[in-house]
Amino acid sequence: MATAAPPPRRRTFRPAPFGFLAPAIVLFALTFALPIGYAGYLSFRKIHISGLGLGAGARSEGWAGLSNYTSALSDSELLNGTLRVLVYGGMLVPIMLGLALLFALLLDADKVRLRAFSRIAIFLPYAIPGVVASLLWGFLYLPATSPGYFLLGKLGMSGPQLLSGNGMYVALANIAVWGGTGFNMVVIYTSLRSIPAEIYEAARIDGASELQIALRIKIPMVLPSLVLTFFFSLIATLQVFSEPTTLRPLTNGISSTWSPLMKVYHDAFTQGDIYSASATSVVIAAVTLAISFGFLKLVGSRAYGEQQ
């Protein structure tokens, strides 16, 4: 779809592109590569305490071998956090992308009224910070401030408790669905718009219904976009941090180590153990990279291939 740059005409060495890339390369080295390397280094270090650990010099940093890794990997809280995030992501990603695809197909349908209004309204949550979204939904989950609970109460019913127990997964997934559907919808919709109309004409002449056109033509044609949005949603899900952190003051149902990244933060800043936090974060980064590359390999070059 995207046109690749035409083949080169000259093959002599030119310093210009490296000069142009210098700011990005320097920033990458300083704010990505160096911190990652430092985290890797710290993950093999620990504080050695000599004697009773009192007085200057009693605590010194030294090599730890793999001990930070063995304790990180055997920590049940990391496993539990991972399972919680998997449950959360298992609800969130299919619902969010399903809705995004549905809304994109509806936007692309014929004779829709108020199309612009709906598109803007559904995309609007993208502009709202995750922290503020969590605050707003947090208040909507609180029976005291929620119109939903008020109306249910008038009907003599009590709503589900979303801020405790398993309701928490629904509460958190809903915030992410709300925030992410519009963005993904617009990505998918844009790729729907790039399908030539003649294809639909041909299908209609062959007697295909709008539903058949959607299922047999539109969805297969936007598959690369779906793959891309699935991939980015998956990465974002594994990295969830702000939303559960923001909901914590409103409920007792979220521990300070609810998600793996919250555990890393907790270990580093509440426990003050930057070494085991580094080991855990290296493990998380390695798993994320493995999933990403595995996924990209699995889908072949469909999503990114047009870039190369």
């Binding site: 060495f13 594994l238 980064a285």
Partner: peptide, 30 residues
């Protein structure tokens, strides 16, 4: 431009997307 290492540089820069923010932010802070 076409130059040696173009795709390597591009892919390395893109890989930054995949780094979980906490994983970056803690050593960045330190």
């Amino acid at each position: 431009y076409r130059f040696a290492g173009r795709n390597a540089i591009f892919n390395t820069l893109l890989a930054g997307v995949l780094m979980p923010p906490v994983v970056l932010a803690i050593p960045q802070y330190l």
